[in-house]
Nucleic acid binder design. Structure first.
Lengths: 153, 153
DNA sequence: ATAGGGCTTCCCATCATGGGAAGGTCAAGG
DNA sequence: CCTTGACCTTCCCATGATGGGAAGCCCTAT
């Protein structure tokens, strides 16, 4: 099995397989006489493990630990669970950060009528942190569109 | 106002200010005779605009567009709102992706008892996409811990 | 033998940010 | 006046995971 076939079978691109080898995440593959890398099913399985771990957002550094635990028959499942839990916590923190951005953006976008006129509370906020209350509603036909409540998270 | 003061006043590091200048996001600052960059309040305001935009997750490329609209007195607020909405959509997509990872990870972590024994459904899943049903509960004292339902966001 | 496709290595780019070195500048205090 | 320390300048390197591409070798089918 050469690198192209291993790539197809594992879902990891040939480029990435070489990269993982270069940084020592996987052991150096065997070679044919002409220098082509050769992969056995075991190695493809390891590549699939890496692929799935990446899909769950684990950084390569953590995958190194996961692989070590995978190979270690005397591992304690607590160690694996801790890695998974830390990963969950990290993802949740990022989600909270992005959710805060989304909430702010939606708040601003809701206050922007989005028409042909130049008045824009979004730019006003970015530029001055709410300077002149140039809310586009002040220019409109009397119909007040009150700013939405800001739900953080 | 030199670069250090502008950095403090805007919340953008001196390093980043130079970088933004080098990529043309901001115009080249004036210089003293000795070559020090000089910043006027207007420029600090622009830096604060950039800072706030970055805090909302906008990539530099989009900030360029936002700045152009900010300066353009004949802009249409619809254009600003479109940028904001696209940003919201992009963030929400990423949040959904991460939420899916979180759900999968929590599902796996819940199935792992996390004790001293080596049996681990997390590793089993990563290695084989659920091979031998080596759920740790099978080894436990009869008390079944059913796998949680998997809510995909 | 030749063509095409796959393999090899090596370099470059991404995106936004920080670290650090080498050297010039400024202000305060001896 | 000179030193000291804190600042500024430019330039190079690193991050993390990935892709693009060039130059050159190898294999297989025609």
């Amino acid at each position: 099995m050469n690198i192209g076939e291993a790539a197809k079978a594992s879902g990891v691109s040939a480029k990435m397989i070489r990269y993982y080898e270069s940084i020592g995440l996987i052991p150096a593959a065997g070679r044919t006489e002409s220098g082509y890398r050769v992969y056995a099913p075991t190695e493809v399985q390891m590549l699939r493990f890496i692929r799935r771990s990446r899909d769950l957002g684990f950084p390569v550094e953590k995958i190194e630990e996961l692989l070590a635990l995978w190979r270690d028959r005397t591992r304690q499942s607590a160690d694996v669970k801790r890695l998974a839990t830390e990963q969950i916590d990290g993802l949740e923190r990022k989600v909270r950060e992005m959710q805060a951005m989304i909430d702010t953006l939606r708040h601003l976008a809701d206050a922007c009528c989005g028409d042909h006129r130049p008045e824009c509370p979004i730019l006003a906020d970015l530029g001055h942190g709410v300077e002149h209350g140039s809310d586009c509603t002040t220019q409109q036909s009397g119909k007040e569109v009150p700013v939405q409540h800001f739900h953080s998270r």
